[in-house]
Design a protein around this nucleic acid. Structure first.
Lengths: 231, 231
DNA sequence: CGATCAATTGAGCTGGTTCAATCGTTGTGG
DNA sequence: CCACAACGATTGAACCAGCTCAATTGATCG
């Protein structure tokens, strides 16, 4: 399927927004739209000549799997985010759909060529890459916390922020994009610990669980206070 | 002091290597060489209008300090590496010299202007940024390991690789750029745990301690096997 | 030579892991 | 429409790796 930039939901925010209509159209002809169902894999670690993509709708996870088969989630990707390791001969990480997704996929060569042709695109990608770096370091800081409650509180607040349209204030009620197991993988904890702390948060009146995936922040201030990390 | 690119030790590898002599000279006039002693701070979290820099000699750490004063090391920077958060109004992290250092410092505005003027520089910075992102995610993977021995083994191997000139094979014997406390901060452990595991590694014949900072990898293969993480 | 700071080592405690059983939700097929 | 299977989430009990507190040793430097 060809790309329909005109109706692209992230037209304003994705890296390609810096291109002119004509340039964007040219890039679009090199790419294609892909839909993924929850759980489907976009790239796998070890793939040679893997592609890259901008996420239009849904959520992705980037994860590493070690020799023992333990999975570790390294990043969450939200709409307008970019995945794919430029300049690398093969992929180091898996990229998997957390929810049903829609993406705009490019061959890596095409993307690299476009970076040469369009300096503004390279600068936009640099900006995005720096943001990703910042996000990775924030996760690093979060997972360095000694106790499980702090880490989990930080993750919940981060997801509340991501779930909100307004970048400033977090959502009060939303659906968690991650299972307990996935939260555990992000935080370096076990499923059981995550589950126990969630129950304790609810008992203490910090949150309320709404069905399977839903969560409501009953007392965001107290939750935020737990975190002890800026932003 | 003005910059002497001609005698720059990272002339070939730094981001500015992609520029022509003339372009580089122009950029150089906007920057200055700075020397730091071990422990001195280059940028502090919260600095407005902070600068950015390429590291010529020595080693830096990038770290975050939370409200409780707990420090967390987010990255190590080696020669030819770049520090400074482009596009950000203020710094989020501290940058401190781990050893005596020499740097090439630029005002952030100058650097951002240079990225506009020189597309090749923007691409080089993108590449570097992606490498930094990859390094951050590798550290994330390492600190996700359940047991202290695995994490420490991974850090030692990473430092051995960084200490080696040849990018392929790690040094057999080198000086650790970090104190026990700093290693602990990187790995989310305590000083005592790091110290104990180091002693155990020595007792088990994996490493040998050489004076205060020195270390020798007696059995790198067995150490690597402990890690359980690729690369 | 003493002072200071990093590193080591010991002892006890605790929070998170591990193992295991149960419950709840979702989706499928009869 | 219900039953059942599959999977995620919860909860309990016991254990143990790493944390905390504390004392000692070792290295570096004026």
């Amino acid at each position: 399927m060809n790309l329909a930039c005109a109706s692209c939901p992230v037209r304003e925010r994705a890296a390609c927004a810096v291109l002119t209509e004509a340039e964007r159209g040219e890039l679009a002809r090199a790419g294609r739209t892909v839909k993924l169902k929850r759980g489907e894999m976009l790239f796998a670690a070890g793939d040679e000549d893997h592609a890259c993509a901008t996420l239009l709708r849904g959520a992705l996870k980037v994860s590493a799997v070690d020799r023992e088969g333990e999975e570790r989630i390294l990043a969450l990707i939200h709409p307008a985010g970019f995945v794919g390791e430029l300049f690398q001969p093969f992929a180091h990480h898996d990229v998997v759909a957390l929810t049903d997704c829609e993406l705009c996929v490019f061959a890596r060569r095409e993307m690299e060529a476009a970076l040469e042709r369009h300096p503004a695109l390279a600068r936009a990608m640099l900006r995005r890459s720096q943001d990703d770096l910042h996000a990775a370091r924030e996760l690093l800081e979060l997972t360095g916390k000694q106790d499980a409650a702090t880490r989990l509180a930080g993750l919940i607040m981060a997801m509340a922020r991501a779930a909100s349209d307004s970048p400033c204030h977090p959502s009060q009620a939303f659906d968690l994009p991650l299972t307990r197991g996935e939260m555990a993988q992000m935080l370096g904890l076990t499923i059981e610990t995550v589950s126990r702390r969630m129950s304790k948060f609810e008992k203490d009146g910090l949150i309320a669980k709404k069905g399977a995936r839903g969560i409501e922040l009953v007392d965001p201030a107290r939750l935020e206070a737990l975190v002890g990390v800026g932003l």
